[in-house]
Design a protein around this nucleic acid. Structure first.
Lengths: 226, 226
DNA sequence: GAACTCTATCAACACTGTGTCGAGTGTGTC
DNA sequence: GACACACTCGACACAGTGTTGATAGAGTTC
């Protein structure tokens, strides 16, 4: 059985050459293939679940043989982790923005804007979100990456709740972090169900209304915070 | 690739013999092996994830060869589905009881009792819950089974919310079913995270307090319903 | 322009796991 | 004692993963 941690950076030389980690010089053909593999993976994930995509599919899609695939990535999982990294980076952008909106003024509007941005960012990459969930069940690195992301959101939400309580806008109640964990996990699950079109799931255009309603009631004790 | 639907009933004769579906007569040795396979699966699932358990492991554990395993079950997934069936049946018991408690009297206490029973039933079989989640990502039958379970809970909770609104105990708000979906999915996710000991997750003894608090606020608009 | 290096490529291999086939072996029954 | 039937497993075919080793070509370097 392979060791727990696999490198997902496709850099051919195992350790960073020299000290910097800049891109390779003029040499380009390798980068092209790398990109072709990533694009093939994203395309195939729109069509079918990760478990039904083989290394051979990725190689064929990128116009190379299976062994050549292993020159660029150590495994199929590494490809998907690279794709998830990008999603996470994009989502981090939305988060910054959302926090800023929330900080000044009306919590209802701010919260809705925040959840909206995040939902939008994920919906745009539905296939990647579903693949991430699938990978998490078998891959420790995927679990760690997702845990890090969740921790970030929980920390943000915890801070928001504490600020609102301190300024008297929100009543005291369960520990802010506990509340934040449950709310963030609810969002994850509800959004996933909608993306996967599960059997009980919210319609796409109902997700935000319902989530915002529950967040406001959980934090402020009412849907119309003062 | 195998067809979508696999039988999980281990009965050797493909179709139910005669018309009833009673157990086989005096013949016993087969049933023993079947039970041994199921017990081995449950035991191994306490030790490691489903993806790291092979058909050979199950066969060895039950003291038979791999081909013989296939005499009893069509696949590893079928074994796990049988185990999940049992969990679901046990959980259905808790649900009946919980609804009864809820029907007469204090919603706070009733709701807490209900969520408590369910949480307890699942925590007792943590390993099976985790295996079910893993299986759901690759197995359509597992998805269908789980969807059915979720639909049942959502229907119950929807009914409770509607009754509470009709009798004026709960204020109007988002459609009852939408609210129910989000709350039930929140519970699933929060409980899973705690069972899996994920990085942001609620401590075992915090789960119920936090979930009940959010449910009450979401349904009644306050944590102290009248 | 011969030797040397470094990226890139793939046929062939070794291995793990799944599921099937067909040839058994024992036990009970008519 | 022969027929059926439940049960068992060695041997096979197949799909997928990851590795090895040989090689091709492009770009220095002297």
């Amino acid at each position: 059985m392979p060791a727990a941690s696999e490198a997902r950076r496709p850099s051919p030389a195992a350790e960073p050459k020299g000290k910097g980690r800049g891109r390779r010089g003029t040499r380009a053909s390798g980068d092209d293939r790398e990109r072709a593999i990533l694009e093939t993976a994203e395309r195939l994930l729109e069509e079918r679940p990760l478990s039904e995509i083989s290394v051979d599919d990725l190689a064929k899609g990128a116009g190379i043989s299976r062994p050549t695939f292993y020159f660029y990535f150590p495994s199929k999982d590494a490809v998907v982790l690279t794709i998830i990294d990008r999603l996470v980076a994009a989502a981090a952008g939305s988060r910054e923005e959302a926090l800023a909106t929330l900080a000044q003024g009306d919590p209802h509007a701010g919260l809705r804007r925040g959840l909206e941005d995040l939902y939008g960012a994920f919906r745009e990459r539905r296939a990647v979100v579903l693949a991430a969930a699938e990978l998490r069940t078998t891959n420790q690195e995927a679990r760690d990456l997702w845990a890090e992301v969740m921790e970030g959101w929980v920390a943000d939400v915890t801070a928001v709740i504490e600020v609102e309580r301190a300024r008297g806008a929100a009543p005291p109640g369960e520990p802010a972090r506990d509340l934040a964990i449950a709310l963030v996990q609810m969002n994850e699950r509800v959004q996933y169900a909608t993306f996967a079109d599960e059997s009980p799931s919210l319609a796409d255009d109902r997700v935000l209304d319902v989530l915002v309603d529950i967040w406001l009631r959980a934090i402020y004790g009412t849907a119309e915070p003062g």
